[in-house]
Design a protein around this nucleic acid. Structure first.
Lengths: 259, 259
DNA sequence: GAAATAAAACGAAAGTATACAAAATAAAAC
DNA sequence: GTTTTATTTTGTATACTTTCGTTTTATTTC
């Protein structure tokens, strides 16, 4: 086998799996690990991958803020379960909106397993993730960028959204309360959430159990203004109250998914 | 067997397999490896294949756009020098526009050493970089996202830009030619570049030496339509021609910077 | 500190370039 | 229509370079 052939196979696997290990490649291509390492060095110099201890990953030059990554790690199992549940509402070919947030970011990652979506979002990190998946049409609205959340906000963002209409919209919230409704820490983001809700036929809100009973600065909707609230199993204690109010609550459990 | 016959068989196999090896061909065509190598040298000179150690592969003669990271690794020293030179035109507090591209991405990275800028861009990766620096006000225009370049393009992008005005604008180009002007591989990006130029008082174009004499699909400006062209020292041979035309060329050298 | 991974050094093997000789073919001369 | 002369093509031989794997020595990671 030619060296160039090996290189393209390595890149192929990398695209499919996101990461490769030296030992794995050494076995699969039937050459020594030293050779694989030399290949990886060459490919890294060409900017085609990033070497890490034990193998390589796709080049990810996104300077992702630590605070955000830390946040992402919090209750990631619950968020993943919620994202999985939300995913079940999305079909290939759909046109959807996704708001900024850590739970919605989890949902975006899961869209790797979906094809041919048109996704409108105001979250720059979500747009980057979807772009890297390479199979969706990504529309990012314009606006001023918020440092912490990667969200685009402001009048330009709102104006851009008003020219778009979708069927389904998935947004997150920092707090959910039977009386105070859905709230976020930031006013500008709340405004964008509001516009997103206007532009979608069906609105899904993704919140983990820790958000229940919390209220923050900016309210963007009442609990009954949305079509469905998707949360995790740990939110079960709060369910009753919402069912009384006639709210559609969907509980996702890490193992499977229940209603 | 005639030599020409051998050549066509080699090309045939190449089209079928993407790559061929010298030993394989030597056996199949029953001639020595030296002969095969001479054949391959001839075919390479004719631009019909690319020779590699052990054999040959097909040549991609189409100017296909490669991945962003791949481009980023190329001529990175020159790009850095150019970016440094461009940086000298930026003052703290400035409001600037930055177009999509690998050289402009280098410039964005250097803005870490600058304070309090307001930056308008159509490049999602540049917005992410600037956001991570945490000291600038970042405005991303909306639009459809291009996979390869992370650029936001389309009518929404253009419309967003038309509502903004800045003093300085920094854009890249894929090709620069005295007659054919500044060109890019992609039409949609050329359109955005055009609008950016309209919205800025002073336009700086960042191109490394390899872009000189090249022409691609979409022209977005003539060489004299921009205020300054910033390039690297290796472009010196081309300078004279541009000076004749009365074009402002600025050469950046890796060590320092000269005019 | 142990295990895994990486780097460096070295040598063997595979591949390449060049020179030169031997065919084969073409051109010229008689 | 030969024979001679040049030209081209191909193969052998040799020196050189690149590639790759083994071994040894460092460096990470847990």
């Amino acid at each position: 086998m030619l060296a160039a052939e090996r290189h393209s196979k390595i890149l192929e696997q990398l695209r499919a799996e996101q990461s490769v290990t030296v030992s794995e490649l050494s076995q699969a291509l039937d050459v020594s690990e030293v050779t694989i390492r030399k290949d990886l060095i060459k490919l890294e110099n060409d900017g085609l991958l990033t070497r890490i201890h034990g193998g390589a990953t796709i080049t990810d030059f996104l300077p992702v803020e630590r605070s955000f990554t830390e946040k992402l790690a919090e209750r990631s199992e619950e968020k993943l379960a919620i994202a999985h549940q939300a995913l079940s509402h999305i079909q290939p070919g759909d046109t959807i909106m996704i708001g900024a947030g850590t739970t919605t970011m989890e949902l975006a990652k899961l869209l790797r397993g979906m094809n041919d979506l048109t996704v409108v979002t105001n979250a720059v990190n979500i747009a980057m993730e979807l772009n890297s998946q390479g199979k969706h049409h990504v529309i990012l609205i314009g606006g001023e960028m918020r440092h912490k959340s990667f969200a685009l906000v402001g009048s330009v963002a709102a104006e851009n959204l008003r020219n778009l209409s979708v069927f389904k919209c998935f947004i997150g919230a920092d707090g959910i309360h039977p009386e105070h409704g859905l709230t976020t820490l930031n006013l500008a983001e709340a405004q964008i959430n509001q516009v997103m809700m206007e532009r979608a036929r069906k609105v899904y809100v993704l919140v983990d159990y820790s958000k229940f009973g919390e209220t923050y600065l900016a309210k963007f909707a009442g609990v009954s203004d949305v079509d469905r609230i998707i949360t995790d199993a740990a939110a079960r204690p709060f369910v009753e109250r919402y069912v009384e109010l006639g709210i559609n609550l969907e509980l996702a459990s890490p193992q499977g998914v229940s209603r």
